[in-house]
């Protein structure tokens, strides 16, 4: 019997080694696997390269990992935000390396890694300083630059529902990087709001097939937290959870 589910977030992140490249899903807070990041902080791996669209918001999740000095290098498209004070401080102090990649190229580089593509030509960034030094080619009259895949040792992603074979569905715009990061990592770890029975997910609607997923852990009910207060969530049918007042 195949069972990719694990019962704790500690098991879900077990074995991550120092110096690993870790993809972390999410766009801002939507789809950020906060519970898995917290578990990674407790697990203790350091000298990490983190691939994520942003470089942390506020003091939780990725920002907390950064604050503990565990990350040597960030690969992202948009580190600077109104609430990225943790990253900003580390960067200004020269305590973290940064590679900025245009968002669509970042997504395609991750997709390429999962799809076994060796490199690709992209029109995004042509003629800009972010394409400096890259091979350029004119194809069918349009300028392109050569970009390479980004793969990872581990992906930490958040999905909505998953089964023991690792099939996943997501919720709304929290899907963002989840499917492509799962495919691009040697070990893909998904936290889900709800683990469901095998067969409960409609095969027509599975977004990430289980072949891309190695571990699934339920964090139900997921915390939607604002200013330290639980503000909501959804049940397995997508209905809002009661918020205790």
């Amino acid at each position: 019997m195949i069972d990719k589910t694990v019962s704790t977030v500690a098991e879900a992140v077990a074995g991550i080694e120092d110096g690993s490249t870790i993809m972390i899903g999410g766009f801002g807070r939507a789809g950020q696997p906060v519970e898995l990041i917290d578990a990674l902080i407790d697990q203790g791996a350091s000298d990490l390269t983190v691939v994520s669209n942003n470089a942390g918001n506020g003091d939780l999740g990725l920002a907390a990992l950064l604050a503990r000095g565990r990350v040597r290098r960030m690969i992202c498209s948009f580190p600077r935000q109104h609430d990225s004070w943790v990253f900003d401080g580390l960067f200004r102090a020269g305590q973290i390396e940064l590679e900025v990649v245009p968002q669509g190229n970042l997504a395609e580089r991750i997709r390429a890694a999962g799809a076994g593509i060796g490199a690709f030509f992209t029109p995004t960034g042509v003629g800009t300083e972010l394409a400096a030094g890259k091979e350029e080619r004119v194809i069918d009259g349009r300028r392109y630059v050569l970009d390479y895949p980004i793969k990872a040792d581990v992906a930490l992603i958040a999905a909505y529902r998953g089964d023991r074979w690792g099939n996943l569905v997501y919720r709304e715009t929290a899907r963002n990087f989840g499917p492509i990061m799962a495919a691009a990592a040697t070990t893909a770890v998904a936290q889900v709001d709800h683990v469901v029975e095998l067969g409960a997910l409609d095969p027509e609607s599975v977004v990430t097939p289980g072949i891309f997923v190695n571990r699934v852990v339920a964090v139900s009910p997921r915390r939607w937290v604002e200013n330290g207060e639980f503000v909501g969530g959804v049940d397995v049918d997508g209905e809002p959870l009661e918020v205790a007042r």
Binding site: S77, F78, P79, R80, Q81, F87, D88, F91, R92, L98, V100, V101, P102, Q103, G104, N105, P123, T124, G125, V126, T128, L130
Partner: peptide
């Protein structure tokens, strides 16, 4: 701190 996001993709997109 450089931060490009989707700007370059949108510009040609």
């Amino acid at each position: 701190i450089p931060a490009v996001g989707g700007a370059m993709d949108l510009a040609i997109g």
